[in-house]
Every structure is written in C-alpha cells, then in structure tokens.
Design a protein around this nucleic acid. Structure first.
Lengths: 158, 158
DNA sequence: ATTGGTGCAAACAATTTGCAGTTAG
DNA sequence: CTAACTGCAAATTGTTTGCACCAAT
C-alpha cells in the first residue's frame, strides 16, 4: 500500500520538485503532529531533533512549497505567527477551528458545516468559492468544566 | 442627534480613556473608509494627510485600544498584515468577508449566516462561542464577469 | 501635581533573500 | 550533468517599547 509520504513525493515530482531529506523530515514532523498547529519555528525545532543540520530558512521554504501544493494550509489565529496544518486527505474543504480564549487550545471540526452557507454565498453574492476559513473564538469544553468545578468547590467552602 | 464620533468618545470615557486629537483623526479616517480594510500603515498615511505630526506608533496604539473596546475588529487575510475593520453599530457578530484571489478585492457580507452552524458547534462540540471569523476565498462577481467577457470576445475573433 | 498620551528612535520578532556551495534525478 | 536545493548570515517588514516631553484634569 502506498504511504502518505509516497503520495506527497509524487505530488512534488509532478511539479518537478525534489523530495530532499530535509523536505522529507519536515513532512514527517507534520505527519507526526497532525493534531497540533505548529508554527514554522515549532516545526524547525522538531525537525532539528532528527536532522540537526537543517536551517530555519529551509523549513520556511518547504512550508511555503507545501502550501502552494495544497498539502498544508497556512493559518493565522491572530497572534503574529503563521501556523501550518496538514490537509486531511480527500477533504474538499479546509476544516474549521475552535480557539479557546482561556487556555489557547485549538480544536478542529472535521465535518463541513458550511454547505448551506456556501450555497447562499454563491447564489446571492455571485461569489465563486474556492476555499474558506472558519474559526470560532470562545471557551472550550475543558475550560467550561474547570470553571464549573471551581464554582462548585468555592460554594461548598463558604 | 448623536454622531458616531460622540458615541465612540463616550465609550472611551467610560473606560477612562481620552479622545485626543490624534485618536479622533484616526477614528475619522476609519469612518471615512469604512468599506476598505486598512492596514495600520494605510491608516497612518491617511491620518498624516490631515495631521502630519502624528506618529506611526500612536496609530498602532490607537488601533489596539479600539480593538480592545470592540470598536474595530482586527483581521488578517493571510498576507502578513493586520487590517482593521470598524464594527457595524449594533451588530452582534463580526461580519463575513469575501476575498477575491484574482484581484484582491475584499467584499463584506453583513448578514449573519452562521446562526445554524453556531447552534451545532455549541451543542455538539460543547464550545461556548464568543466570536467568529469567516472568510471565503474565491472569484468575485466582477472578475467572473470579466473572465466571461474575455472568453466571449476571443471566441468571436477565432 | 499627577495620570495618561505622544513622537521619535531603537528594539524585536517573524519571515525573506543573496549567495556560494551541494545534491537529487 | 545541471537545475533545483541547501545553510548561513544579512536584510526586510510589521509591530512594540523605552523614554523624555506634553496635555488635561
């Protein structure tokens, strides 16, 4: 069976790019940390553990390349840093994000909730949608639970 | 009748901030360019036309302050620049954006299309939504029209 | 007087680029 | 072999900060 790396290699080759060891190491780090939303610096530090000779500029260049090929998506949650998120295979659309304003955690919503909304945008606004970004800011379920527990315990101590 | 500036002035005062001439000039620029999505630099250049002695740092500080007070929203369309967008008065939620990947234009959708989606997110993912960001990337109606016309005209020339 | 606000220049942080040397296909 | 790629350091860009001075209560 064909691995995810193999498929990415083909994508590179079909645009006459090479899969160098540095690029492979970078992609592996992304695969191993699919749940996270790593910044370029984060990726650099993780790659460095396995391939210490790599330079930060190369990581940036690789991430840019992968973004161009739509293998990763570049996202920005409003702090000054770009983060990079592997596209789920076969996903027609970019997934959605839940950013917790308490603890900073970023959760993902993989199902596409925007079908109806996109139909409205295409019809009513005559906009041909190629991609979307949807992020909710609020309180994640963990912080809600924590807040409830604290309210409980302080009540019992009064 | 109370002007928009007056109301903003009150908001500042109620948090014990002053409406200095520099801040007023900055707010006026935002009001006069409500349709646009100005970067800090853009705002700075426009303010400078009226009040040449203002410094870029002051503009940054003012925009930060206005963001804090939820008078403007800070957005980021993926180029490395933050843009600032006046909140529509009375709008419970941040409006949506349509970014054209052809011409770079940014159009706004003022109606809130996310009601149903937010209900799902709150119920199914137990996430308490405080705000959202929704941006579509694609081809705006103007560029679609242009592309069609060009296709037409080249056809007639064959 | 005291607190908050300003302009300027310097500091910072994230990202990009020039270049001489290296390597995958 | 050769166009693509790399590491490094320097350059660039957007934004923030320190500080001495100014303005409004």
């Amino acid at each position: 069976m064909e691995s995810r790396i193999d498929r990415i290699k083909k994508q590179l080759h079909s645009s006459s790019y090479k899969l160098t060891p540095q690029r492979e190491a970078t992609v592996r780090v992304l695969l191993e940390n699919e749940e996270d939303h790593l910044s370029a610096e984060d990726v650099y530090l993780l790659v460095k553990e396995k391939a210490p000779e790599i330079g930060l500029a190369t990581v940036y260049r690789t991430l840019e390349l992968l973004t161009e090929l739509k293998i990763v998506d570049k996202i920005n949650f409003g702090d000054g840093v770009s983060r990079y998120d592997l596209r789920k295979e076969g996903a027609a659309h970019f997934h959605h994000h839940l950013v917790c304003i308490e603890c900073g955690a970023v959760d993902e919503i993989l199902e596409d909730l925007l079908g109806d909304v996109e139909a409205v945008v295409e019809d009513k606004y005559h906009f041909e949608i190629k991609d979307h970004r949807l992020t909710f800011h609020g309180i994640c379920h963990r912080c809600q639970k924590k807040a409830n527990e604290e309210a409980e315990s302080s009540k019992s101590h009064v």
